[in-house]
Design a protein around this nucleic acid. Structure first.
Lengths: 330, 330
DNA sequence: TTGGACTATGCAAGCGATTCCATTACAATT
DNA sequence: AATTGTAATGGAATCGCTTGCATAGTCCAA
């Protein structure tokens, strides 16, 4: 069903139908009603593809995430979707599973759909893709990568501070054997956290440590923990790159009959809901995902944030939260 | 950048460029190379909106879910996305948060995008929407609602069997005071589980029970548990409509210093990964989401399932899984 | 009655692709 | 050399919509 049919039935031109459907005030009340009646009778749905094509914009935003299964990303998605909807946009979401190849596919897809703004919240970003997106003139937001320019913004989370706080806190509880559980992502976020971990831990002369990595999932966290113990290392504290994996670590400790925090302390990162719901609840570092989502939206849709420059550098500070998964070293 | 520009640069017609880009074999090797070279130099991306419009199909599938945050839905999403990608489709996902109003918006959006197939995995479905979708001639899959017809399929999970097994099992462990934790969804899935619970529990003359409902989230599960205890009822077993909420229940029990399963047994439903990772791991009922995702895809894309009829009734059987969250009544 | 000044509507040109049909190029066959 | 068949390309209509511009209708003041 298309405009033409509706126009015929309502006895007006397609231009008028288009205006009526789009609530353009020019149309007279009576005409508008006739149009809506005809549209309803014919079960008419505006073809959004045609609309995007003709209108020159898609009224859609895109979000690409590394792992939507991890609530960290999902929470951002949720905020972004709500903002988008409130402003008459729809949100197209895509998942890369941390794979560079899929990321490229997703980017092509989003550009192909001619989204009006694109958020790329991934840790496997590649400069070549940034250039690619840049050349399209689509407003974009990246995450922890390079700096802002043109119409591209960047969100930077100060992971380093967070990890430092974690290590300091554990050290103050007399811990000295640390394990760091990361995930298989080549670039920034894990990288920064891992680097920060190394720096922090190196400051203590009596500290020993070990680093393992696995995929970003519950299973990945558990496997990582298993790997640590298989190596013979006996950490008194396990610092995880995020809460999701930390829950996996907790599971393995349970299996090994190690009590948390009496025998070993565990920390997460992100402060997803699940951190509060794990047993024991996780000591972690809060990253304000609401704020990230909101700022991302504002960066993508300039008219929603008048006065703020189109391409900007956004810095987000984490916040340390102590719960029950950490305690004095045994 | 568009076809015309690429055509000009490559010195061919737009028809030829279109064929080259779409890998239609008619194009001579040398020409093809010239076209790709020009496209690359111009940073050309096919406009998918235009393509959908001209081609008469969008090469996109849609999936609408009640709550993508609940891994039950996300797992289906993942399978569906993989199948879709493997067959050259993209997947548009939308979330309703169990709200009828949002569901309608999502449906309009999907129809507006002219998806080639639409899966509606929600429990708040409404007959009027089914008719709406039916009239568009888009192949669709629904979930636990009515029966199959035309090009519309239906997936039905035999929840009843699952709940029966759960109740029987708990009864065999001498439990007699049951609580059922559901969520605020008007229609089938919860409804069926709840009804099945009532039926099963009514068979035992010494059984007492109570039913509470809350939103489908970790918080919702916890609040539901709180409500039970606030009412003064002291269940020996809490049967949850799904694992996600069960994890919330577990959290509240921890707060109340009640041991699971020594003081109270808890069961979930769905067998999401988290069920295995909670503490204690949840006794639950497995619903094969891989199978559901796959069957959904086959129902949406007929050419992927030759021989099978377009509109069919798919029945899925759950499987009872005992873990550590259940034990003999205290 | 007529002439603005609006308000409502229609016409038609795109938007960027696909695809049917016609045409050309070229090689093989007679 | 003429003919034929096939492979490669181009022309142009079409998909459903938006929107600038032209036009028709309406109302009121002069």
């Amino acid at each position: 069903m298309n405009l033409k049919e509706v126009a015929k039935r309502a006895g007006v031109s397609i231009a008028t139908v288009s205006r009526a459907i789009n609530n353009i005030p020019l149309v007279k009340g009576a005409t508008r009603r006739r149009v809506f009646k005809a549209a309803a009778e014919l079960n008419y749905f505006p073809n959004l593809n045609a609309r995007s094509l003709a209108g020159g914009r898609s009224r859609a935003l895109g979000m690409i995430a590394s792992n939507l299964e991890n609530p960290f990303f999902f929470d951002i998605f949720r905020v972004l979707e709500n903002r988008a909807r409130a402003h008459g946009y729809e949100l197209l979401a895509a998942n890369t599973d941390y794979q560079a190849e899929q990321l490229e596919r997703c980017v092509d897809l989003m550009i192909g759909r001619r989204v009006d703004g694109l958020a790329v919240i991934v840790s496997e970003m590649d400069p070549h893709l940034i250039r690619k997106i840049d050349e399209t003139d689509i407003p974009a937001v990246f995450y922890d990568v390079g700096s802002a320019k043109h119409r591209m913004s960047n969100i930077r989370v100060r992971y380093k501070n967070g990890i430092e706080r974690v290590v300091e806190y554990l050290h103050s509880l007399q811990h000295s054997r640390f394990a760091f559980v990361g995930h298989h992502s080549v670039l920034c976020p894990t990288g920064e956290r891992q680097t920060a971990f190394l720096e922090a831990v190196s400051r203590y002369s009596n500290a020993e440590w070990r680093i393992v990595a696995n995929e970003d999932s519950l299973d990945g966290g558990r496997s990582a923990a298993r790997e640590i113990f298989a190596s013979g290392f006996r950490p008194t504290a396990i610092i995880c790159v995020n809460d999701f994996m930390a829950v996996g670590v907790l599971r393995e400790l349970r299996e090994q009959k190690l009590r948390v925090p009496e025998d070993v302390s565990v920390t997460g990162f992100d402060n997803i809901k699940l951190a509060e719901y794990s047993s024991p609840p996780l000591t972690t570092v809060h990253i304000p995902r609401d704020r990230i989502g909101l700022l991302t939206f504002e960066a993508l849709v300039p008219e929603s944030a008048i006065g703020k420059p189109p391409g900007r550098e956004i810095v987000v500070d984490p916040e340390f939260i102590v719960r029950e998964s950490t305690g004095p070293a045994p």
